[in-house]
Amino acid sequence: MKISIEIRKPDTEGKRAIRLIYYGGSYTDPETGKRRHKRSRESLDLFLYDKPRTPAQRHHNKEAERAAEAIRAKRLYEYETGKHGLGGSNQLKASFFDYFQSITDEKAEGSQSNHSVWVSTLKHLKVFHKLPDLTFEEVDQTFLERFRHYLIHTARTKSSSPLSSNTQSAYFNKVRAALNQAEQQGLIHDNPVRRVKAIKPENNKRVYLTEEELRALAKAECRYEVLKRAFLFSACTGLRWSDVQKLTWREVERFYDGYRVVFRQKKTKGLQYLDVNKTAVSLMGHPSDPQERVFKGLKYSSWHNMELMRWAMAAGITKKITFHSARHTFAVIQLSRGVDIYSVSRLLGHSELRTTEIYADIIETKQREAMIQFPDVLSEPLPSSGY
């Protein structure tokens, strides 16, 4: 079961009603033979002002969004409690496999790569446990420590290779996330993850472009014009691929003498307000219908990835860049310009400051290199002072 919030179109008074949509799996239409989603809706006594003009209306919108999210969370808790029989003494006898599967199904609506990690984690859990079912009662400190050891020392990929440390960390973190969610929903009260160390991932090298390289890239020809605009837009705003790809004109608003993008992050689901600079505005192109995507035609494919590398080579850049390099570029350039790390963290939409600190390490490395590479002024006679 997935429950999402839907904001309806504005009525004649400029108010947008809020309702919940319940997704209950799918079924085969007997007439057409096609798969169709099971959906039901619940109207809430809440609304948003379509174009808030006063502080009071903007405050109303924030409170209405909070209230809608609280109701959604309550309904999801009620559903999970009823589904798994998690009331009273039956709580720990419920299936952790089923609960983990329900979260995995919800993730299918989001990032494909994130969903695949949840799917793989469940597969490894079942390989490790070796029994048809696993209850919440069995997922204790000892179980987590043994599963942690399994991921590090025993688990293998499809090609029979050991899991990388980052993959080990990702899989173990999904189990931790599921248990943390169960605790937040009141399904369990003694969370064993607090007593088991996480698997520390390796810090992968962040590939970013300098300002000079970014200018060279802007001048170089790219086979896919929308890819060029989207990559440069990401480098100018710090938006992730997932948010650039789904950005619609409805989310682009006039704000004072400029523009602001108001969107909900696909990865974290957090609502973000981002003022857009003039360069980024020009990269978006001419405004279209509200429901149209700003970067219409932008796709994730091997062809686009290959073109990204070819485009970089045409600009004289030998770095192995990906679309995410644009986001790294934005962070490094902002920090290099003296923007404080807290502001950069907010602009990137990070939920934790420590996620942003990796970029501060890059800046410190650049500063150290600049000091070490300072020219040897004593290798040649000093010029005459002239006095």
Rank of each mutant, 00 (worst) to 15 (best):
Q91D: 08
R346K: 14
L378F: 15
Y22A: 00
H304Y: 15
R195K: 15
F233M: 05
I3S: 00
Q334N: 11
V207S: 03
I152P: 01
A370H: 12
E31I: 14
W118M: 10
L122F: 03
K320N: 12
P52I: 13
V332D: 04
V332H: 09
R260A: 14
D340F: 08
A315V: 03
I7N: 11
N166P: 07
A326Q: 01
I358P: 03
H328W: 04
K74M: 11
S160H: 07
K319G: 00
T81C: 08
Y359N: 00
H60K: 11
L227W: 04
E307Q: 14
P201T: 13
V226K: 00
Y23T: 02
S384I: 12
S165E: 09
A331E: 02
F136E: 12
L122Y: 07
I5S: 02
D257R: 13
G386D: 10
L382M: 12
E63Y: 03
V139I: 14
S385N: 11
P55N: 07
A331W: 00
Y256A: 06
R75K: 15
R254Y: 11
L348T: 03
A315G: 08
S385E: 14
D11C: 10
V261P: 00
T32Y: 08
N166W: 12
R337S: 12
P52D: 10
T322E: 08
A94E: 12
H149V: 07
T355D: 03
K200Y: 01
N203P: 02
G25M: 08
R195V: 08
N61D: 15
L348S: 07
R260C: 05
E225Y: 03
F263P: 09
H129Y: 07
S343M: 13
T210N: 05
E63C: 07
I372A: 06
D50G: 04
L48G: 08
K83P: 00
S102Y: 11
N204T: 12
P162V: 05
L232G: 05
E292Q: 12
R215K: 09
E251A: 02
